[in-house]
Simulated scan of single mutants.
Amino acid sequence: MQIESFTHAELVAALEWQLECGADEAIGEVPANRFETAGNPAPRQTPRRTAAAPAPAAAPPRPAASGPAEVAAACADLAALKAAMTEFEGLAALRTGARSTVFADGNPAARLMVIGEAPGREEDRAGLPFIGRSGQLLDRMLAAIGLSRQAEDPAAAVYITNTLPWRPPGNREPSADEVAAMLPFLHRHIELVAPEVLLLVGSSAVRTMLQTSDGITRRRGKWTEIAGLPVIATWHPAALLRDPIRKREAWADLLMLKERLDG
C-alpha cells in the first residue's frame, strides 16, 4: 500500500500510535551503531580468552594380550592352569556356549594320564571328563588292568583330561583351529602332572598329540614318544559302543599298557 493513499489525519494517528509504543525516533536507511557516539567511539570489546582446559592424560598403553603359549607357560600349578583356561578369551564363542569348563578328573599323582578329545553332553553338565556311557566303559576297561580314577595310590591311579575343555555344539568334532588354540594348555597340563605314560583315546587325541593326519586305526597299539614320554593309543569307548567287535583290539592295547606300567 502506497503512503499517498493515507490522509494527513491517518498519518498523524499512525505516528502517535508509534510514539505510544515507544518508537521515538526515525530509522535511517543505514544501520547505526548505538554503542558508538560521535567523535568518541566506545572501545571495541573483544571476547575474553579463557585458559584452555588441560587435555586429559593419555591412558597408558595396554600391554599386548599374551598368546596361549605365554599364558600356559606362566601357570605354576594345576589350579592356576585351570583358572587360566577358564578365563581364556581365544575361544570365547565356544566357551560361552558350554555349560562347564571340563578340566580333569582323577589323581594328579597318577603314573598314567589319559587324554580324550572333547566333553560330551554329560561331561558338560557335570564338569568332569568321561562320565557318560563312554566314561563308564572306560572305567571298566581300566579296572580290568587294575587302574582307577578314584585310587589314591599313584601306582593304581589314573588322571584323565581332554584335548578341549569345552563341549563343541552338537557334540561335533573339534576344529583344527580350536585344538591348536588349546594345545599349549594341554602341553603345560602334561608337564605339571608329569605322568610316566600317556594313553590317547580316539582319533582326535591322536591327531592332536602326535600332530598327524592318521586316524586311530593306523596308530592304535603302537608305542611312540612325545618329548621322551611313552605314548600308546586305543579306540575311543564311544567307538567300542558302536562297534563292540573292536573291544578285542582295545583289550590288546590295554595289555600292552599294563605291561609297560608293570615295567
Rank of each mutant, 00 (worst) to 15 (best):
A252P: 00
T96H: 14
R260P: 00
K222G: 06
N107F: 02
A181G: 02
E122M: 09
A42C: 13
S66W: 08
V231Y: 01
S148K: 04
S175Q: 11
A51M: 11
T224R: 13
W251A: 12
V197G: 00
Q136G: 06
R95V: 15
L164G: 06
V30K: 10
L94E: 12
K222S: 05
A233F: 00
Q136R: 14
P61R: 13
G146V: 06
A74L: 10
S5E: 10
A205M: 09
P54M: 15
L138N: 05
G228Q: 04
E36L: 10
E87I: 02
E25K: 15
L229Y: 01
W17L: 15
R49L: 06
L19G: 10
G67K: 00
L147C: 04
P68H: 04
G263T: 14
P68I: 13
L15P: 01
E178F: 08
L240S: 07
R95T: 14
R121V: 15
G127E: 06
A9P: 00
F103K: 12
E123N: 11
T212S: 08
A76Q: 09
V201L: 14
A250Y: 10
T46L: 07
N33K: 08
E152W: 05
E196Y: 09
V102G: 05
A156E: 09
L91K: 12
A65N: 06
G127R: 06
A238G: 09
R49C: 12
A156W: 01
L200C: 08
R121E: 11
T46S: 11
F88R: 01
R218S: 04
Q45F: 15
P54H: 13
R242S: 10
M113F: 13
H189K: 10
A250C: 13
V158K: 04
E173T: 15
V197N: 00
K222R: 13
L198M: 09
A239E: 13
L186N: 02
A9N: 03
W166S: 06
M1W: 15
E10D: 09
P165Y: 04
A83N: 04
P169L: 11
R62T: 12
M182Q: 07
Q136A: 12
P63V: 09
F185Q: 08
T163H: 03
R49V: 14
E36K: 13
E87T: 05
M1V: 13
L112V: 07
N33F: 15
A38P: 07
P154I: 09
A93E: 11
R140E: 05
I131L: 06
G263K: 15
E4R: 12
L199K: 03
M182R: 05
F88T: 05
L128M: 04
A59D: 03
L192R: 11
P108N: 10
R133K: 12
V231K: 00
A26I: 11
D77Q: 09
A83Y: 03
E191F: 11
S134P: 04
Q18T: 12
L11H: 02
R242D: 07
G28E: 02
V231M: 04
A98R: 03
Q2E: 08
